[in-house]
Amino acid sequence: MWMYEKKLQYPVRVSKNDIGMAKYLMAQYGGPDSELSAGVRYLTQRYSMPTNMAKGLLTDIGTEEMAHWEIIATMIYKLVKGVPAMQLREAGLGAHFAEHDHAVYPGDAAGVPWTAAYIQATGDPIADLHEDLAAEQKARATYERLIQLTDDPGIKDTLRFLREREVVHFQRFGETLNDVQACLDSKKFY
């Protein structure tokens, strides 16, 4: 099961409204390499993992991704809070306002709704862990681009924290891949 903890994993400081930045942050909220994709991907793949290490790690990282998803949502929520419709329209969120008002709807930076087609669960632990390693690198690269798109020190700080977590997750997935590989090698006969 899961249990909600009534707090963010990391503080979100936003100094002023920035509609454009809210739009770009949707990449990490409902895009292909988003925190949502990461969470659903890992929490889905864990059922076909052969080792306790892989089951545990996918559960724990998948859970942390949901906390990151909440952090991104909070940034978007604060960045567009109280902004009138016409200003949203001028900054490129007119279509978003028409369909979702100020709701934090999971779509990508271009407004394309999130889809499970962004993730894979092949039932093959080696293939899945390689996808996870790639996903962490793609998310790291996205964070580096997002950091370049803002001059708000609070947003930059939180994005740097999230970027660093992708690096740690990549490291742990690599260690787990080695463990799964060793486990499978010891069992296989051709």
Partner: peptide, 23 residues
């Protein structure tokens, strides 16, 4: 106080991932 909790929980999150691969 919340910041202190966030720091301690972050330390735990980072440690559990490390322990998952270094039990």
């Amino acid at each position: 106080l919340l910041r202190e909790i966030q720091e301690l929980e972050f330390a735990m999150v980072d440690l559990i991932l490390f322990l998952d691969t270094h039990p």
